[in-house]
Design a protein around this nucleic acid. Structure first.
Length: 563
DNA sequence: ACGCTCGCATCAGGTGGGAAACGG
DNA sequence: CCGTTTCCCACCTGATGCGAGCGT
């Protein structure tokens, strides 16, 4: 299943854990930089809601290279560089591969069953497919809003990459992640202070190699790596209200293989090439000055989204991944083969408006594929063309995806992960999502002013409307999408009959034209996928429109429900 | 005259490609 | 020798500064 793992904070229930924590790493990192977040573009608006259910993970255990079920069962050990925030925050229900001894540092006491190494944090996926610990997990609470719920923004994009086994370039000077991590958080105490940070831990104990067009294991991972594994959000610490107000983007997080870099502790995460990693989000309640509140029962909540798993490389191995990066990353536009030709077609045939035209003209088109494009930035959900939009639209250069419910796949689905499986969380979730994304955006007011009038929909529809409805259908669709991970082209987007056929032909030729053959020669599948991807925006846009008109975003907030 | 908005130019920095260098 | 890493390149994005135009 792909759902989201709802990993949680049960570990924090012990007093020992609380006492152990003193100061959040956040205070050691970059200081708060209000507004900086918005200089990054938001990610797509796609957010999938996954309630803390954790039961459906079974289907995906066969292939370790495919999707790893959302489960907290991953085992972790305290990474030397991660300091007090080891992966051990996870509650594991599955024993890790033998050979790894438990870590004694940090919060390892929460992973009594772990047999982990002692170097870097490591999260071993539950290949065995065991049940999720979360499903039976109960979390201590300190009152309403203390159990966080996290949405992985732009999940469709992550899924696209994950289908081909995401690769992330690491360089000495540090390379940003793409897609980057971006979350929406709900369920926090509005007034309490939290530090939010990402930790990257080993996803498995293997060393990987790209051979014969596939990623295959090649010996054991080097567990002796050192270096920072945690990136604290620059706005930490901050109030729950602040964190829930808008997306929490980690777009400036950089990955490096340079252990000696002086920046590694604040901006970069040190990884080893050809190792598989799993990013994890941690939310730690702290005092106003960034010191963890030892009086609080719930200290830390951790969230893992399997689709964000990646293999660190110094050079791309899989050309499919390369193409996806080029297609979706605006900074790589220069590598798009049909960069110019794409805009010579007639307006109706284009996926995006001509760069010379005012994007605003398209923003008002309800459900149009271009509608929200100007609001995207780094993680565009739509394919290539939309990126070009920015060339002509200065007014909204920085976009917060919150403004764009439409995403690459044209939907506003959200994968939601909560630390608890309690359904009652929907309340806080809805509260959070009901917040207008425009509130408190400061300098962005000017942009909002220009844009909002054109928005045909609420920029941030409340999932409340969708949760209750969260039709089983959607739920199943998502599950399938995720489960198709190993290269299967099956995804719910394909099942949307609308518009898909519309541009499929064009998209196919376009994709074939652009695509670079993978070593494995999986051209057929690849082409299908790319076309699917290209068409998905259209398809889902249509679906989005339809749903919006009928019952709001209901159908687009897919989520898993407890069985 | 003043303040605001807009458009253009500039520049720092991000991107993948490819060749060279490195190292087991 | 071969796989991996590093470096440089061209291209692009996006932040910023500046000046022109406009309204008050």
């Amino acid at each position: 299943m792909l759902g989201g793992e709802g990993e949680s904070s049960a570990f924090s229930s012990t007093k020992e854990a609380a006492d152990e924590r003193r100061k959040s790493p956040a205070v050691e990192g970059d200081g708060p930089t209000p507004g900086s977040r918005y200089t990054e573009h938001g990610v797509g608006s796609d957010r999938y809601y996954i309630p803390p259910t954790l039961s459906k993970q079974s289907s995906e255990t066969a292939n370790p290279c495919s999707f790893i079920p959302y489960t907290p069962s991953g085992t972790v050990y305290n990474p030397s560089g991660a300091g007090r925030y080891p992966s051990s925050l996870h509650l594991g229900s599955v024993l890790p591969p033998a050979g790894f001894s438990p870590s004694t540092a940090g919060r390892s006491h929460f992973s009594p069953t772990y047999q982990l190494g002692q170097s870097t944090g490591c999260l071993y996926p539950p290949y065995a497919g065991s049940g999720s610990a979360l499903s039976n997990m109960t979390l201590p609470t300190t009152g309403p809003g203390t159990r966080a719920q996290v949405y992985l923004c732009n999940r469709p994009l992550w899924v696209k990459f994950h289908r081909h086994q995401t690769e992330m370039i690491i360089t000495k000077q540090g390379r940003r992640m793409f897609p980057f991590l971006s979350f929406n958080i709900a369920g926090l105490n509005l007034t309490a202070h939290y530090n939010v940070f990402v930790e990257v831990v080993l996803a498995d104990p293997n060393h990987w190699r790209f051979q014969g067009g596939k990623w295959v294991t090649c010996g054991k991972a080097d567990n002796s790596s050192q270096g920072n594994k945690v990136y604290i959000h620059p706005e930490s610490p901050n109030t729950g209200a602040h964190w829930m107000r808008q997306e929490i983007s980690f777009s400036k997080l950089k990955l490096t293989n340079n252990k000696g870099t002086s920046h590694s502790t604040s901006q970069m995460i040190v990884l080893q090439s050809l190792h598989k990693y799993q990013p994890r989000l941690h939310i730690v309640e702290v005092t106003e000055d960034g010191v963890e509140d030892i009086n609080s029962d719930i200290k830390t909540q951790s969230f893992t989204f399997p689709e964000t798993q990646f293999i660190a490389v110094t050079a791309y191995q899989n050309t499919d991944i390369t193409q996806l990066k080029i297609d979706h990353n605006p900074f790589a536009k220069g590598f798009r083969d049909n960069y110019d030709s794409m805009y010579t077609a007639q307006e109706n045939d284009r996926l995006t408006p001509s760069p010379t035209e005012s994007p605003r003209a398209h923003q008002i088109v309800p459900g149009a594929r271009y509608t929200m494009q100007p609001f995207f930035q780094d993680q565009f959900v739509n394919n290539l063309p939309q990126n070009r939009f920015y060339n002509s639209e200065r007014a909204v250069p920085q976009t917060n995806s919150l403004l764009s419910p439409q995403s690459e796949d044209g939907v506003s689905q959200r994968w939601f992960v909560t630390s608890v499986q309690q359904g009652g969380n929907s309340t806080s979730t809805s509260n959070k999502l009901d917040l207008t994304p425009y509130e408190g955006w400061g300098s962005r007011a000017a942009y909002q002013k220009k844009v909002t009038p054109s928005l045909p929909w609420s920029p941030r529809p409340s999932p409340t409307t969708g949760f209750p409805d969260s039709s089983e259908k959607v739920k199943l669709q998502i599950e399938e999408e995720v489960n198709s991970g190993g290269g299967s082209t099956s995804s719910w987007t394909e099942r949307q009959p609308s518009a898909l056929s519309l541009d499929k032909a064009d998209c196919y030729s376009m994709a074939c034209k652009r695509r670079r053959l993978s070593v494995n020669g999986s051209s057929t599948e690849d082409s299908d996928i790319k076309c699917e991807d290209l068409a998905s925006a259209v398809t889902n846009d249509s679906a989005y429109k339809e749903a919006s008109l009928s019952k709001g975003m209901a159908a687009y907030y897919s989520f898993y429900t407890n069985p």
